[in-house]
Simulated scan of single mutants.
Amino acid sequence: MELGAFSISLTVHDIQASQAFYKKLGFEVIGGDPEQNWLILKNGNSTIGLFQGMFDKNILTFNPGWDQNGKDTDSFSDVRELQKRLKKEGVPLLSETDETEVGPGSITLEDPDGNSILIDQHR
C-alpha cells in the first residue's frame, strides 16, 4: 500500500516561536502562510507542518501522489483505492472521501493508541 509522502502535522501554540525553534534545528520554510497560521518546514527528507489553532492534536500525514519534496509522482495509489482497501481490512475510518469523485480527497483514521492519521491527496 503506497501512502505517498510522509510528514507530521504539529499543533502549535505560537507559530512564530515554533518556526524559530525548528529553524535552529535546520528546518527551512518551504510553504504555507504564517498570516493564516500554518507553515511547512523541511530539513533533508524530514517534513513538518506547523498549524496554530487548526486542530487539537498532532497528526501523521501521508500525501498520495507526492514525493518527499512535494512533487507529483508518475504513479500512485489514489486515496479512494486506499479507502477501499482499509475498509476491506476492517480499519474504522473517522472520515471518508466520496468514491465517485476523482482528484483531491482525504480520509482520517486513528491507530490503536489514538494517534490521528490523515491521508490527504491534493491531486
Rank of each mutant, 00 (worst) to 15 (best):
M1W: 12
L3N: 02
G4S: 06
G4Q: 03
G4C: 07
G4T: 10
A5D: 13
A5M: 10
I8W: 01
I8A: 06
S9V: 09
T11Q: 11
I15A: 01
I15D: 02
S18Y: 04
Q19F: 15
A20R: 09
A20P: 00
F21A: 01
Y22W: 09
Y22C: 01
K23A: 09
E28Q: 13
V29Q: 13
V29F: 04
V29C: 09
I30M: 00
G31C: 04
G32I: 03
D33W: 11
D33S: 08
D33A: 13
E35C: 04
E35Y: 01
E35S: 12
E35M: 05
E35R: 02
Q36M: 12
N37M: 10
W38V: 00
W38I: 02
I40Q: 11
L41A: 04
N43K: 11
G44N: 14
G44Q: 10
N45D: 11
N45H: 12
S46M: 11
S46E: 08
S46D: 09
T47D: 05
I48M: 15
G49A: 15
L50T: 10
Q52H: 08
Q52K: 07
Q52G: 03
K57R: 12
K57G: 09
N58T: 15
N58W: 06
N58F: 07
N58G: 09
L60I: 13
T61V: 13
T61R: 08
T61H: 11
T61M: 10
N63S: 11
P64C: 02
G65Q: 08
W66F: 11
W66P: 12
W66Q: 15
N69T: 15
G70I: 14
D72I: 15
T73Q: 15
T73M: 15
T73C: 13
D74T: 12
D74Y: 10
F76Y: 14
D78W: 01
E81M: 11
L82E: 00
L82V: 07
Q83F: 02
Q83K: 01
Q83N: 03
Q83M: 03
R85S: 12
K87W: 03
K88N: 10
K88A: 12
E89W: 12
E89D: 14
E89C: 14
G90M: 11
G90D: 03
V91K: 08
P92H: 14
L93S: 04
L93I: 13
L93Y: 06
S95L: 05
S95K: 02
T97S: 09
T97K: 02
T97H: 01
D98V: 06
E99G: 08
E101D: 07
E101C: 08
V102F: 13
G105Y: 05
G105W: 00
G105A: 02
S106N: 07
S106K: 08
D111H: 04
P112V: 08
P112K: 03
D113M: 01
N115I: 09
N115R: 10
S116H: 06
S116P: 04
S116W: 01
S116M: 14
I117F: 09
I117Y: 00
L118E: 08
D120P: 00
Q121A: 12
Q121D: 05
H122Y: 15
R123Q: 06
R123S: 12
R123L: 14
R123N: 13
